[in-house]
Write a protein that binds this DNA or RNA. Structure first.
Lengths: 145, 145
DNA sequence: CTCCTTACTGATAAATATTTTCAATAAGGA
DNA sequence: TCCTTATTGAAAATATTTATCAGTAAGGAG
């Protein structure tokens, strides 16, 4: 199902701002804040009101087309969501984020916790932090200076 | 090592605001925002400047005495940290949060991802969401009305 | 116990970030 | 092509977080 249809099914419309926000996030290798999405839109000659960025992100979140990622410090950004449920691995040097799947590994854990706590566990958020290959190289290079 | 010593070792001082913030977080079963910590301090007749709350939280984070939890929607709050590394299970009805340990379960996953991606994985954040026992009861009660 | 250094607080102000409001615009079904 | 109504953008209102600075008090030295 394409974007247009997906939006229309929800009683929503396909508009330029929505296309632009989505395409900016598709290009971006790192999570972007509303502010920086707005900035990108200006630089691309496709300015969108900052307010619309907020609203658009809200809509795209509901449609599960984008996801929120949290930095280790709590500030968050948005990334494009690929189909299915994935988690993110974020480089703490350059913020580059990639997705990975952890379904199976978590299933055990969640079942165990549910049993131990009496909670009904129905959701989870997992993020890993690390150093991406490129930043590893840069780091080595710096050591050898 | 007690709080006083811990602070002094870091060249910091033990002050009333720090005690109050800490004790408020110790009492709270749910993550609190800076605003609500401030509010609590007023209600307890121990008002602390909002600015100090922010500063205090920063300090307590550095000392690993409190931790940040993220809601599914991204808004975050602070909870008291028990010793060792733990994760949080948050009730999406009442926000009640409890800790759990997932070290072992995650170790495998992290090792696997590290191999698959080439990233050096050195950190993680895991949160589970669910329905706490009390809210489960309430829900059942409502159904039977 | 008192003094002295300096970390800390609280008030104010400034900077950021987010939400609300509303008239004008445009998406898309009839 | 027209009409309904979701959506946009601009401005303003809120909320959140950070910076500044003079006054206060923690805690080591004597």
């Amino acid at each position: 199902m394409d974007l247009q249809t997906k939006l229309n099914n929800a009683g929503l419309r396909m508009t330029r701002p929505r296309q632009v926000v989505l395409s900016i996030l598709e290009e971006a290798p790192v999570p972007l804040s509303p502010q920086s999405i707005h900035q990108h839109s200006i630089e691309a000659g496709q300015e969108i009101g900052l307010v619309s960025v907020y609203r658009t992100l809200e809509v795209l979140m509901e449609l599960a087309l984008v996801r929120k990622v949290h930095g280790a410090d709590g500030c968050h950004g948005y990334v494009i969501a690929s189909p299915g449920h994935h988690h993110h691995l974020v480089c703490h040097e350059c913020d580059r984020a990639i997705e990975f799947s952890g379904k199976e590994d978590l299933a055990n854990l969640m079942a165990r916790i549910q049993k131990e706590t009496g909670y009904i566990v129905d959701g989870h958020m997992l993020q890993l932090y690390g150093l991406c290959p490129e930043c590893q190289s840069k780091m080595k290079a710096r050591v050898n200076e």
